[in-house]
Amino acid sequence: MTLLRHHATWIWLLLATVTGLSWWFGSDHGIHSSTPHAGIAIGLLIAACIKARLIIFHFMEVRHAPWPLRLVCDVWVLVVGVSLISLYWMGLPPA
């Protein structure tokens, strides 16, 4: 019991920290500029996918689920991550 308790709490702390960092980098505190900043944007998207996977696997408890469900969830995270990053890339001004 205490183990699971600690486990979910650590995951939650990690999620909150990443959220704080995304907030810092994503809002205007981090970088004063209104031009696209690919490094930060892609970092934010990757962070979002990692957070989504943490919630799905640890909070939803998919990590204990049979493999087809684990696979489908991983595919969702991967497809969302890859397509969002590529679509973002499409919108960058030509270098």
């Binding site: 907030w23 970088i31 934010l44 969002l84």
Partner: peptide, 15 residues
């Protein structure tokens, strides 16, 4: 929660 986690950077933060 998961949906908001992706929605938040996408709409509010993306540079």
């Amino acid at each position: 929660d998961v949906l908001w986690i992706v929605l938040f950077p996408l709409i509010y933060l993306l540079k």
